[in-house]
Write a protein that binds this DNA or RNA. Structure first.
Lengths: 101, 101
DNA sequence: CAGAATCCTACAAGATACTG
DNA sequence: CAGTATCTTGTAGGATTCTG
């Protein structure tokens, strides 16, 4: 799945091209979120969400934190590298805004 | 192919997620280019390049101009809407720069 | 709750050959 | 030159069911 021959931006865009990924990144800008919440926000089936989260982790854009609690609790947050993406996310959101008018 | 139910940014990212599309858009920032040149820049087979260019046209990000000459000549250029994408392209390129260091 | 396992269908994308 | 036609293989991603 990881095509290391590609430029980082191509890897990134390939991942962001998948359904829900932009929403995931944007949502995490406001702080960590749990699996279940991301599922509701993106409307992805668990299998697909799980795949995307792993790929985002592989690219070191998000981190996964597991708490030893019952019931289980896990949350996902932007990494430093992921936060470096924020200007691009904003630019894309701004473009969308403009293109809706 | 056109999933009109999606938000513009999701449509855009789905398209930009395909191989070569980022390169196409970036290259066109410097002015119109011909099919053959885009083929060399992206390393895409003609069929795939042709598909991507049509999809970019559908989203009104690029325009196609055909000249009645022999041999045939066609070129592609960013539209106004496509130029609206430039801040995002720059942000992505900047992110890549940073992430390489 | 947070996923993993299994199954399925549609389409991505590359290779190759051909043409107005 | 700028594509189209045809064929093949891999993967996306949705549905559903199950579990540590």
């Amino acid at each position: 799945m990881l095509k290391s021959a590609e430029r980082p931006v191509e890897q990134l865009l390939e991942l962001m091209g998948h359904k829900g990924v932009f929403t995931i990144l944007r949502s995490l800008q406001n702080g960590p979120l749990r699996f279940g919440v991301l599922q509701q926000l993106t409307n992805l089936p668990p299998r697909t969400l799980s795949l995307r989260l792993k790929e985002l982790e592989e690219l070191r854009l998000i981190s996964r934190t597991e708490y030893n609690e019952v019931p289980p609790r896990v949350d996902y947050a932007l990494t430093e590298r992921g936060r470096g993406l924020e200007p691009a996310l904003e630019a894309l959101a701004a473009w969308e805004e403009k293109s809706l008018r």
